[in-house]
């Protein structure tokens, strides 16, 4: 068994993410007014973390269930998922996000988070399906079946746990995606600026914001997105058997 440690870069990225979640939690508990550059950035952090969490919480269960159904059980669910992937991948995201952000009924940030989550759920389901297809013919799955495990038990106890790494990668990218899309729609002014405070609004030259707010918001946006992408990339690389240091380690035994 090879020890797969995270690099310094990945640890820094993970620490940054934890710090941002902490800041967002603190801002939510203590109540931050969006006044001044720091206040706007802190409120933007809260918005970003909240939206990312909402998107992930929507995408994760749906993506897992649909992906597992399509990959494990069947043709119809599989065909349906294939069509959904085709449709969502051709959807121009700026129109989608802009229209959802312009809806006013019932908490716009919630609608945006849920809609982005539904969109990403299709992508997540595609990943889970692919992973299940790959795992279905592995020896340990055949062994579980040979020992008499039912189909659902094999899926839940033996197959799904092995899909968690690609799911984790996808979750990181989903969070980065949600934050990026929200910043983009706010930057081009596709929603009411008063609806919520965002890094994208602070970056927009069309919106009046205090001195330094754009710089702080820009740094925060780049840092969080970089950290999320780095964690995702590191997860992929740490599971890559062709990684040079792992090859050396395996040769050493």
């Amino acid at each position: 068994m090879t020890r797969r440690s995270w690099s310094l870069r990945t640890r820094v990225a993970a620490a940054i993410l934890l710090a941002f979640v902490g800041i967002a939690g603190g801002a939510a508990v203590m109540g931050t007014e969006a006044v001044g550059a720091v206040g706007i950035t802190l409120s933007g952090t809260r918005t970003a973390v909240w939206l990312a969490a909402l998107t992930v919480l929507t995408a994760l269960p749906i993506g897992l269930i649909v992906g597992a159904m399509a990959g494990w059980y069947g043709r119809r669910a599989d065909a349906l998922l294939a069509r959904a992937v085709e449709v969502t991948s051709t959807l121009p995201i700026i129109i989608f996000a802009g229209v959802v952000a312009s809806w006013t009924a019932g908490g716009t940030l919630v609608s945006l988070g849920v809609c982005l989550g539904l969109l990403r759920a299709v992508e997540l389901a595609r990943v889970v399906r692919g992973e299940i297809h790959r795992l279905a013919c592995q020896d340990f799955v055949l062994a579980a079946r040979a020992l008499g495990a039912s189909s659902s038990r094999t899926l839940l106890r033996h197959v799904l746990p092995h899909c968690l790494r690609p799911v984790a990668v996808n979750v990181s990218l989903t969070a980065a995606y949600a934050i990026g899309i929200e910043a983009m729609t706010s930057f081009v002014g596709l929603r009411e600026p008063s609806a919520w405070v965002s890094w994208g609004t602070a970056l927009s030259p069309a919106q009046p914001s205090p001195a330094g707010a754009a710089l702080l918001a820009g740094i925060a946006l780049v840092t969080v997105t970089w950290a999320l992408c780095t964690v995702a990339e590191s997860s992929v690389e740490s599971s890559d058997p062709l990684r040079p240091d792992l090859r050396m380690a395996s040769r050493r035994g």
């Binding site: 980065a176 990026g180 983009m184 930057f187 970056l203 946006l221 997105t225 970089w226 780095t230 990339e233």
Partner: peptide
């Protein structure tokens, strides 16, 4: 990765 993260626009 940094370029991906940058809000280039």
């Amino acid at each position: 990765l940094m370029v991906v993260a940058l809000p280039c626009a």
